[in-house]
Simulated scan of single mutants.
Amino acid sequence: MITPAQCRAARALLELSQKQLAEISGVSLRTVQGFEAGERSLQSLAMSALEGVFAGRGIVMIADSKWTGVKVEQDPRSP
């Protein structure tokens, strides 16, 4: 599950605007804006759509008892 802060951070790492994320994921811009602002929760379909966009672009969500954040998986074929 993605937190609003993770969503903002992942977008920043990918250099995506909220509008671009909405278009790519099929989630409405208003929903993305509300989620990132902490004003609304995401339905499971919207959450899955955002997770799919991020995972497909190498974003890994970090969430355990000590850390919360995001990281970008580098292309394993790169030196």
Rank of each mutant, 00 (worst) to 15 (best):
E36G: 04
M61E: 07
M47Q: 11
R40F: 10
R40C: 15
L42R: 05
A55D: 01
A55Q: 02
M47G: 02
G58I: 03
G69I: 03
R40L: 11
T68H: 07
G56M: 02
K66S: 11
G34D: 04
L45E: 15
S44V: 15
T68V: 11
S65K: 12
G69V: 03
L50E: 00
Q33R: 13
D64A: 05
Q43H: 14
E39G: 12
R57L: 01
I62F: 04
R57W: 05
A55Y: 01
G58N: 01
A37S: 09
G56V: 03
G69W: 05
A55H: 02
I59M: 04
F54K: 02
V53G: 06
R57F: 05
F35S: 00
E51T: 10
W67C: 10
I62T: 06
K66Q: 14
A49V: 10
W67G: 02
I59G: 01
T68S: 11
Q33S: 12
A49H: 08
L45Y: 12
E39P: 01
W67K: 09
E51S: 12
Q33H: 08
E51Q: 14
K66M: 09
E51A: 13
G58S: 01
M61H: 05
I59F: 04
R57K: 08
S65H: 12
G34R: 05
A46Q: 13
A46D: 15
D64K: 04
V70W: 08
Q43P: 01
G38E: 14
M61P: 00
V70Q: 07
E36L: 06
A49E: 10
M47E: 13
D64H: 07
I59S: 01
G38N: 14
V60F: 04
G69S: 05
A49C: 11
F54S: 03
R40I: 14
I59R: 01
V70T: 08
F35W: 07
A37W: 00
Q33D: 09
L50G: 00
F54H: 02
V70K: 05
R40Q: 14
Q33N: 12
A46V: 07
S44Q: 13
W67Q: 12
L50P: 00
S41T: 11
S41K: 10
I62M: 05
A63P: 00
S65R: 13
S48Q: 15
S48Y: 10
F54R: 02
G58K: 00
G52H: 07
M61G: 02
M61N: 03
Q43Y: 14
L45R: 15
G34P: 00
G52D: 06
T68D: 07
K66L: 12
G58H: 02
V60A: 08
V70L: 09
S48G: 07
A63R: 11
D64W: 08
